[in-house]
């Protein structure tokens, strides 16, 4: 305490005052009763100051939205296989200690998604296009890179900067579940949860900026090589995507939210040259045995 400077003291006093005020005066921001939430022990946090636990909680919320579009593919062996490949890659990434979770979404669309905190999804439609484990690893490595570089979280922070303070508040998935399943009077929670859902929907519809996608390609192909896979399976994937008719509805969202495969191939030229000496594995047989 002795080392605290004057501004730090002021900040501490202000924080205490705000916390007490929220609890005692039922502070409202818009339709949201912040005081009530804090009083009930619900975690409320700000987009500009998110720690790892909160990052995971936000990822849960976003994942619940993705799984609300289409559920997981009902095949335990396939989901566990994808988790094994993903976890191996994640252990070679810059954030091995996140609670990584991987899932196959039951959709004929060709796409893959990431959510903050270690959530990665691949559609069964995308999985169908692949020929070996290295190609699966390439898809997952791209999404893992979005998470390690916090691309979605940064996009949310930018959005929060442009919005009112209510938009920068989030609630954990557990609190959302507890309260949406509760009595009808908890309307505030529902309003709030709707906002969080809306933000996730907007982000997945709009997509990340192109620079983030190109960066995830560079980090992805390197992660693939670093994990012992044939790094050029990454290029195989993009070439397969490029060969599917661009107006195919299965690719609609992928094309809306990503640069074209041709643009991505061009941007990887330098990396391919740098990794020319790489000799990793494809693992065709293991892939075929599970995804048959």
């Amino acid at each position: 305490m002795k080392n605290l400077t004057c501004p730090a003291y002021l900040l501490l006093i202000l924080s205490c005052f705000l916390f007490v005020a929220c609890q005692s005066t039922s502070l409202k921001i818009g339709n949201l009763d912040v005081g009530k939430l804090v009083g009930q022990g619900v975690k409320v946090f700000n987009a500009h100051n998110i720690d790892q636990e909160q990052e995971v909680q936000f990822g849960e919320n976003m994942s619940a939205v993705l799984l609300g579009v289409r559920p997981l593919y009902e095949n335990k062996d396939i989901n566990i296989y994808v988790n094994n490949v993903g976890m191996w890659l994640a252990q070679n990434s810059s954030r091995p200690n996140l609670p990584w979770q991987f899932g196959v979404i039951n959709s004929s669309a060709i796409n893959a998604f990431a959510a903050p905190g270690g959530f990665v999804f691949i559609t069964s439609g995308m999985l169908m296009q692949l020929e070996n484990e290295a190609q699966l690893a390439a898809v997952l490595a791209h999404e893992i890179s979005h998470i390690t570089e916090q691309h979605h979280l940064n996009a949310i922070k930018e959005e929060a900067s442009r919005s009112a303070v209510t938009e920068s508040l989030f609630i954990s998935a557990q609190a959302y579940q507890d309260n949406t399943n509760g009595s009808s009077k908890e309307q505030e929670y529902r309003t709030w949860a709707k906002k969080v859902t809306g933000m996730a929907q907007e982000l997945y519809i709009k997509g990340l900026n192109k620079e983030d996608e190109f960066m995830a390609d560079v980090f992805g192909i390197r992660l693939l090589a670093k994990s012992g896979y044939d790094a050029f399976a990454y290029i195989d994937n993009l070439q397969v995507l490029a060969s599917i008719a661009a107006d195919d509805s299965a690719l609609a969202l992928l094309y809306k939210t990503h640069p074209t495969p041709t643009q991505r191939l061009e941007s990887l030229t330098e990396q391919v040259d740098k990794l020319a000496g790489n000799e990793g594995l494809l693992l065709n047989k293991r892939f075929a045995q599970v995804i048959k």
Binding site: V65, G68, Y176, A252, L253
Partner: peptide, 13 residues
């Protein structure tokens, strides 16, 4: 079993 913009807009967690 699509996964497009419309599906996302209509999704519930």
């Amino acid at each position: 079993r699509g996964f497009d913009e419309k599906d996302l807009k209509n999704a519930k967690a």
